[in-house]
Design a protein around this nucleic acid. Structure first.
Lengths: 272, 272
DNA sequence: GACCTGTTCCCTACGTTGTAGAGAGTTTCG
DNA sequence: CGAAACTCTCTACAACGTAGGGAACAGGTC
């Protein structure tokens, strides 16, 4: 916490610090961006700063906290290109795109992001505030807003994770998707029984042909985002009315809308 | 591959094996179920089987492959409670529930599941076949089916990941969500400016109060699944027809619906 | 029976990892 | 000038995945 907000009276005595938390975080982010989160070790970060691993512990209590601060840091510096469009759909799409762009710049984020008990630093909170605003005018109540945002961001994260996994297997095996498929096919033909799995054979072939791979991150994102927004639209554009844009009476749709929480003790949680 | 399908002529010479791949996989799954995937080390698995770490390498080329086989294994043994309901919506909800139940039984799965280039074993393929069938009668074409399934499963995985993260932080900190919040609040009050972040303050408070925590996995699942199905409904319940539910004109909402892939070379990919 | 050969399993060892503990060096306060 | 506070380094530990080099075992062929 003190770390996240950089609140700590600096010491008066002792040799003057050669490092700052910010420099450490920047170095760690640099490594993570270039070589993945797995390459971020205390020794590696220290080396980049010209000190030993242990000296980092004067600034940061542990690696877990360092990663929390990295996360808050990239959130704080995130570009928010979202247009103040008047249509909620465009605004939400922009929020999704911004997040996707962030994952593109910092692929390690997808492997790190914490949902429950997020590190409540300035970056996390600013992001939460900003993204909640995209729901202004939708008529959703506060609980629904939070749930809807979590839903949207979760979708983008899934896409980013999948894209990251795809990139990783490309690098590790040093094979393109096609080469992988060609390597795997002859074996599969020997064991796979198309009569037992007719749908899998047909759909797999069609999807593979359309995408040039078993999985295409871009398509998955485009397809999924449309579904996500359509799904939220059913909640937002209410039962009775039905003009081009918003409606009144946001409540209730199939499978039960978000609940109306009856009090309960509880946190002023932020998300992600 | 040989590993996944257990196709390998057993040797005629040499001491008779004390282990089998199945026993190794079962031991590894047992550890992962009980203590998380991080506790699955070669030494630990070996210990549970009464051998040394290195002897596992006679059966399994590396830890990565072992995890692939674990994944295929739990998929193969998965219960599929999906009712052969006549409504696609009920069938898809059942598929989601089945997957959620699987993640509940094997929480480590969420931290492991590979989307692109999945280990194409019998379990993975059977699961793919079964789940694709849930789309029978929806009128979706093959490419759309695959995309829709990936979308649905991705959603469930996200929920499972979040739930797993919540459980992990509960265990690691040995704090309930409330205790965590109470620990963090006094500090937050000192640095957080509600005037700067009015929406975050209000929505966070409302969501926290409703959930009793910053994040509630059950609510997130219920809410999200309804949105996912609503979103797919817009795609499925087409332009012309349609009674009680959807609106007209589903095509081209902003962010466009699924694409129509033009050929391309490619794999008969399976998913997950 | 004896040998060869392919297997299984163990021992040791290397280079990583996060971080605990002790101590050396540096700066400021009383 | 101490003394206290602080930064940074060194060494060390347990745990990780797995490479390399054997020892013990069992079948096939003489």
């Amino acid at each position: 916490m003190e770390l996240l907000w950089r609140t700590r009276e600096q010491p008066r005595r002792g040799p003057r610090p050669r490092l700052t938390v910010d420099r450490i975080v920047a170095a760690a982010i640099g490594i993570a961006d270039g070589e993945g989160i797995a390459a971020v070790s205390m020794r590696r970060v220290a080396e980049r700063l010209g000190v030993t691993a242990m000296s980092l512990y004067t600034y940061v209590p542990s690696k877990a906290e360092l990663i929390d601060v990295m996360l808050d840091g990239v959130y704080a510096g995130m570009t928010r290109a979202a247009p103040a469009s008047d249509h909620w759909r465009a605004r939400l799409a922009a929020v999704a795109d911004d997040n996707r762009a962030l994952y593109a710049r910092h692929p390690w984020l997808a492997a790190v992001a914490a949902v429950s008990r997020p590190p409540l630093g300035p970056g996390v909170i600013a992001k939460y505030e900003y993204e909640l605003r995209a729901f202004d005018g939708t008529g959703l109540d506060d609980v629904q807003r939070d749930a809807a945002l979590t839903f949207l961001l979760g979708f983008v994260e899934t896409c980013a994770r999948a894209a990251g996994a795809a990139r990783a297997s490309r690098q590790q095996t040093e094979m393109t998707d096609q080469e992988w498929w060609e390597a795997v096919t002859p074996y599969l033909e020997r064991v796979f029984d198309p009569e037992r799995y007719p749908t899998a054979a047909r759909v797999g072939a069609a999807a593979g042909a359309a995408q040039g791979a078993a999985y295409d991150p871009d398509r998955a994102y485009t397809f999924g985002l449309a579904r996500v927004l359509d799904g939220l639209a059913v909640l937002i554009e209410a039962p009775t009315t039905r003009a081009p844009t918003a409606g009144s009476e946001p409540r209730a749709n199939p499978a039960g809308p978000a609940a109306d929480g009856p009090s309960g003790p509880g946190p002023t949680g932020a998300r992600r």
